[in-house]
């Protein structure tokens, strides 16, 4: 098999504040193959957006990548200088920031913002960049004559499309989409996900979709990593996650969402996610877990491959088959 597109190994990114260090991302590992879409799911504060920033070496102050490797096509990004990173970003890997409403510059025309991204990363003339920008807008379904508009003249869906255009215009191999559909209406969300899928096929992209919305994951992703309190607790292909998941947290998370087809009883996971300055000892989920015992409180479970391509961090994973722990 070919080398994976992106390999994250034991990545750690912490924020250093007065109270101590916030272990927002605390040793996560996964691989992303070429042309694959991976979903990174979890609740707010679990570290999923920080993961994106850590991969791109864009950690905001007072955060820092404190360990691990991010190997993109054979190159470890953690070892690159800021200067080198600036060349890799957008050319090789780009990001579609969360909240397209706020990520675009409100005082610059949409077209100019995209042209700026091209000119910074490619050695071409202004006219060529202009043409490229217009083609890209067309590809994402925005009328190129609207390139002279300012962001406030765009609807939410159009802004999201413009963000996608900006992330793709330099033809990167990997794109990270941070909550690409969160603030959008379902009808617009359907359009945007469809667009991402078609562009992925067209450019053979590897995509990481970061979201808290499991339905988006079910619809758009090949593989899914579930994050909890700075760790990946389960990682498998999408069907396994939805049909044969083993981690009690994954189970609770999925069964807490009401279905359009009707649901009599919803699971609610008691308590709330822990603070990450002093996360719980042992398994970080144990204070909320219905099957936790002394072992869970004392020892952190190893992230292991329980069967082919199904990774899990839970002491009780072997006894979980076909069991309903949330009764």
């Amino acid at each position: 098999m070919a080398k994976p597109m992106l390999e994250v190994k034991d990545l750690k990114a912490h924020f250093f504040i007065e109270a101590g260090s916030v272990k927002a991302v605390d040793g996560i590992s996964f691989t992303l193959e070429r042309g694959e879409t991976m979903g990174l799911a979890g609740e707010s504060g679990c570290g999923k957006s920080t993961t994106a920033f850590a991969i791109l070496q864009l950690m905001p102050y007072p955060g820092k990548v404190v360990g691990g490797q991010v190997v993109l096509d054979g190159i470890d990004l953690v070892q690159r200088s800021p200067e080198e990173m600036r060349k890799i970003r957008w050319k090789e890997i780009s990001i579609c920031f969360q909240g397209a409403m706020n990520a675009l510059n409100p005082v610059l025309r949409i077209g100019d913002q995209i042209v700026e991204a091209i000119m910074l990363h490619e050695d071409i003339s202004q006219d060529e960049a202009q043409r490229k920008m217009e083609d890209m807008l067309e590809t994402v379904g925005v009328d190129p004559t609207r390139a002279d508009n300012y962001p406030h003249e765009f609807s939410g869906g159009m802004k999201q499309r413009a963000m996608i255009a900006m992330a793709l215009v330099t033809e990167p191999k990997v794109i990270i989409a941070d909550e690409p559909t969160t603030a959008l209406d379902v009808t617009v969300e359907a359009q945007v996900l469809k667009l991402i899928k078609s562009l992925q096929k067209k450019y053979n992209l590897s995509v990481i979709i970061i979201t808290h919305d499991l339905a988006t994951i079910a619809e758009a992703c090949d593989r899914v990593a579930i994050m909890y309190a700075g760790k990946i607790i389960e990682y498998a292909d999408v069907v396994t996650i939805f049909k044969e998941r083993l981690h009690p947290y994954t189970e609770g998370l999925i069964r807490s969402v009401p279905s359009l087809l009707g649901s009599d009883h919803l699971v609610s996971v008691p308590g709330s996610p822990p603070g990450l300055v002093f996360p719980p000892e042992g398994c970080r989920f144990h204070p909320r877990c219905p099957i936790a015992n002394e072992l869970c409180a004392a020892k952190e479970p190893v992230f292991r491959e329980i069967r082919k391509k199904h990774f899990i961090a839970c002491h009780h994973a072997d006894q979980m088959w076909g069991k309903d722990v949330w009764k």
Partner: peptide
């Protein structure tokens, strides 16, 4: 348009 959380 409502996504259903079931990949199958």
């Amino acid at each position: 348009a409502v996504p259903i959380p079931d990949p199958t």
